[in-house]
Amino acid sequence: MSTYFVKRLTYMAIILLAASFLIFSLYAMTPGDFITGNIKLTPERKAELREIYGLNKPLIERYLTWMKNAVHGDFGYSLAQQKPVLTLFNQYIWNSFLLAIVSTFLTWLIAVVVGVIAAYKQYSWFDTLVMVLIFSAMSIPSFFIGLFLIKVLAVDLKWLPPGGMITTGSNAQGFAYVKEVIHHMTLPVIVMTLLGVGSLTRYFRSNMIDVIKQDYIRTARAKGLTERKVLFTHALRNALLPAITLVGFELPALFGGSLIIEKIFNWPGIGQLYMQSFGLRDYPLLMGFTMFIAVLTVIGTLLSDILYHLADPRVKL
């Protein structure tokens, strides 16, 4: 196990080093930046700022400086927001995490339960209805679902607020603040759950169909075990094994998958900040966020390998 971790950590370091150079190079070679595109600055002031922030230095020298600072936790300074990138991350990323963790929990819960029942009742009316809803959810764009639910639930029925994290001008604290946040996050969580539950339900359904045809499932039924115990104890555990590989993609998806949703619902998360930075060409913040996603991807892949080994000891690391 220790040898495996040493090898994986070495691979992770090499992958992240290559990813960091690729990320930095792509953004650095993109034409224009925040200083160049700022029409309020004089040519002399632009040249001065480029000198101050080292934007006129060679690419390799700039990368080495950025990487040295990144190792020490300094991912640069956001010129558009006038704050360090790490400070902005700490300010916005927890809002995104709140949306992502709730929607991910609901997505997996619904997908597992519905997938198991649909597989058990294959070709029934329930299975047919589930498949129709799955393909409908997968085919409709996220912005359409978001705007449609805002129109119906927020504008017409006035059940939920159309956007934001709290009511404008609200001074709520304690439990009242928590209640207000939950009320505002309901719509974006519904949309994110609808977008993710389709493909995951189909994945669990196909896995369960394969598993319940195995000999050991027939043996468990022959022993007189209840159908619920056969499905959710014996079959589901083995059907979950292939799904563990998806964990490696869940970590980056927690933050990368909510970019459009946060923009639609005006949710003050890292996704909306990232989208705004594109228009402003705030490359330090864009590089920091993209590098953050790369780190999460590598860590998620390692976690999925370890979880797969724990779930099935026959698989060697």
Rank of each mutant, 00 (worst) to 15 (best):
I244F: 10
G288A: 04
G300W: 03
L86Q: 12
L106N: 05
L280G: 07
Q122P: 00
L251A: 07
T168A: 14
S25P: 10
V71T: 06
M291G: 11
K263L: 04
F148L: 13
M1G: 11
K151T: 01
Q82R: 15
I60Y: 13
V6H: 04
K121A: 09
R62D: 07
A253T: 13
M185P: 00
E262P: 02
F75M: 12
L17Y: 11
V178F: 14
W94M: 11
G248A: 05
I14M: 15
F249I: 14
S304Q: 09
F5Y: 10
F265T: 02
T290P: 03
L9M: 15
A294F: 05
A28S: 15
S78D: 05
T168E: 15
V132T: 15
S78T: 04
L236G: 09
V6R: 15
R221A: 01
G288S: 04
V152N: 05
R62I: 04
F143S: 11
P284D: 07
S142W: 07
N56K: 14
T3E: 14
I166F: 08
L99N: 02
T245I: 06
S199C: 00
G288R: 02
Y63T: 11
M1W: 09
L147I: 10
R205V: 02
W125G: 00
F265Y: 09
I293Y: 02
G169T: 06
T30E: 15
H234R: 01
V112C: 07
V116G: 03
I15M: 13
L310N: 00
L9R: 08
A13D: 06
F34R: 13
N207C: 06
D210E: 13
Q122V: 00
R8T: 07
W108K: 06
V113L: 10
F232C: 09
L236N: 07
F105V: 13
L55H: 08
T219A: 11
P161A: 01
L194P: 12
F265D: 01
I264F: 07
G146Q: 04
S136D: 06
T42R: 10
T10M: 11
I35Q: 03
I217M: 14
W159C: 02
V211M: 06
S136K: 04
L41G: 10
R202D: 08
K121M: 10
V178A: 12
R8Q: 08
T3Y: 11
P141L: 04
N266A: 14
I39M: 13
P252R: 08
V71I: 15
M29R: 12
I190D: 07
P188I: 09
L246Q: 15
Y53H: 12
V155L: 11
I166W: 03
I190Y: 09
V114G: 10
P84Y: 12
Y53D: 02
L59I: 12
L285S: 03
H184I: 03
L88W: 02
H234E: 06
V295G: 03
I14C: 13
L133H: 03
I264E: 07
I145D: 02
A119D: 01
I134C: 15
R50D: 07
F265I: 01
K223S: 01
N171G: 06
P268T: 06
F135G: 09
I190H: 10
F5D: 00
L254V: 04
